[in-house]
């Protein structure tokens, strides 16, 4: 069974350990600005929300890519960016309606969550259990995907 990242914003304290873990795993640097997962802060409400790619079934980014640089990893179900193929055209960054594919000007390529190949560093690093990697069906994740599908029916 495929696993998915379960995000529970109500448990998040905004410490950004996930962002550091992500950038360290993927770039070898502690650098939140290069993280594939981002914590959004709602200061006035005292809320924090970690958010990243839900590996949505529609795979808007994958279909929009003109050079097949984004492919499904059969082991994880993640949509992986193959940096050696990506030309940096950024079409996927505007195609992803969730805003979770970002352009990295330093590398000239796009970056997105690939579930770290099946062992997401963010989930390991999260000190409060706000990010966990669990069986996809046991999460609110399916609801999240359903919501995504509902709010954005395939044109």
């Amino acid at each position: 069974m495929l696993k998915a990242l379960q995000l529970e914003p109500e448990k998040c304290t905004g410490c950004l350990q996930c962002e550091m873990a992500c950038s360290f795993e993927n770039e070898g640097v502690f650098n939140p600005s290069k993280s594939r997962i981002k914590v959004f802060t709602f200061h006035d409400e005292g809320r924090f929300a970690p958010y990243t790619c839900s590996q949505c079934a529609e795979a808007w980014c994958l279909h929009a890519c003109p050079v097949e640089a984004i492919v499904i990893n059969p082991a994880t179900g993640a949509k992986d960016v193959h940096a050696d193929v990506c030309v940096g055209c950024k079409v996927c960054t505007i195609a992803c309606p969730f805003g979770t594919v970002n352009y990295n000007a330093d590398s000239g390529k796009v970056i997105k969550c690939d579930l770290c190949g099946g062992s997401p560093a963010c989930a390991t690093a999260c000190p409060t259990g706000a990010i966990t990697y669990v069986d996809a069906e046991h999460t609110g994740y399916e609801r999240m995907r359903a919501h995504a599908a509902q709010s954005l029916p395939h044109s």
Partner: peptide, 14 residues
Amino acid sequence: LTQHVGVLRGLIQS
């Protein structure tokens, strides 16, 4: 703007 730019599409289309 390079970060989360796709969400503009998401908000429009949804």
